[in-house]
Design a protein around this nucleic acid. Sequence first.
RNA 1: GGAGAGGUGGCUGAGUGGCUUAAAGCGACGGUUUGCUAAAUCGUUGUACGGGUAACACUGUACCGGGGGUUCGAAUCCCCCCCUCUCCGCCA
Length: 445
Amino acid sequence: MIDIKFIRDNLDAVRAAIHNKNSTCDLDRLIAVDDRRRKIQQEADALRAKSNELSAQVGLFKNPKSKWYQEAVAKGTSPDQIRAEGDKLQAESASIKQRIKELEDEEKVVAGEFQNLMLTVPQVPSARTPIGRSAEDNVEVRRWGEPRKFDFKPKDHVELGTALGILDIERGVKLAGTRNYLLRGAGSLLHHAVLRLAMDVIIERGFEPITVPILVRDEMMYGTGYYPGGEEQAYRCERDAKSLVGTAEVSLTAMYGDEILDEAMLPVKVAAVSTCFRREAGAAGKDTYGIYRIHFFDKVEQVVLCRADEAEGEKFHHEIIANAEIVLQKLELPYRILSVCTGDMGQGKVEMYDIETWMPSRNSYGETHSASRFGEFQARRLNLRYKGADKKTHFCHTLNNTVIASPRILIPILEQYQNPDGSVTVPNALRTYMNGLEQIGARTA
RNA sequence: GGAGAGGUGGCUGAGUGGCUUAAAGCGACGGUUUGCUAAAUCGUUGUACGGGUAACACUGUACCGGGGGUUCGAAUCCCCCCCUCUCCGCCA
């Protein structure tokens, strides 16, 4: 959500954002509803003021203990006269109440529509964000590392993992349906090793590790911008009005919602490893092979809450991207960074970069990380604020990025590190997390 | 899951229908006093949305966990929900 005042003052910029982000937000309707909302408020406020005034008077007339009453009696006014006067005012008050009631009913309807429209207004993207319709218009920023050139016919991760007995998709599907899997033995160890490495890196970079709920109240989904619109993508537990998160970003970002932080607490840098649940509705038939697009996975996520300062937000954006790069570089996996275009970035984002890691079986880079900067979009929805040195409260700015998501990252690991005999060399950086294991499969001796 | 007790400003805590624009204290901020620290003393002290202004000032409304209701008038009475605590039961 962005500031209605900002919207009214920057109609052109918002209109452009709606167009460039392929948003269906009806800006004209929003402005019309807001106009009506303000009119109603003004009228109702005036009536309420009048009503309060009358009630105060009636109070004096009806309360024999009041100073006014006692003075009136002392002056010779009879209790009957006072009561009659009070009844008259009371009748007048009642008629005003009737009109207030009507206005309030309309206010409720209008405010509801206003809220719904406000939730659909996109954040204005940064000036350097490329304008485009879809993922095809994303712009590559830089690359690191060289994709491996194989002198034998490389296998894909499913062939490798199944033959090694570390990946069992069939039984995963038997248990839980399509897009499910089992990781076994060294596969499971590899999965945990990657997460441990990522946690160690992010902690070393100054982030507080936090264990968070992954089944959260729906309002956290609204607060972080996943709802409305993303309900189909999430597993909702309707009878509890809660949802399984698709990322720990939700819990980490909403953690301080409805609070006013001391500026000295900022920036808040937190990270969590959590299981992530995604229904992948609408993705039927897409990436059905292997463990690329699956219903559950584990992810180390990093979140920064900082002051409402554009430059500071940009600084932290670079920082959280660098954090993810450190992990990939430790794993010696080639990757590239994309500046995500307006049409592909999501309504709440100011700026977004994806990191794609080289996946031999796709003969291309595949998305493994996503780094977003939201400005105050999420903070406004979450009512997440801080008190600044200027004594005023401001909405925080929020950012987040993947540190590592597994098992998707196992795709490039298995495929890049495979050997001609079908074994897989364990990346150096992971060996300490796997009891020194150097190779999965064929004998090392 | 059962029974009970609660939820008031940054914090503690009064307030059971109208002299409450939420007492008092603490904290914070500002002034005075002071060789420094401490103490004393005086004052200020929330949020949101409107109106107003160049910006202040000023001003209206709402807010005592959330939402409804009763009433001319609700922190206070009624209903529903959420949360916390205590005891019991169950349990990794």
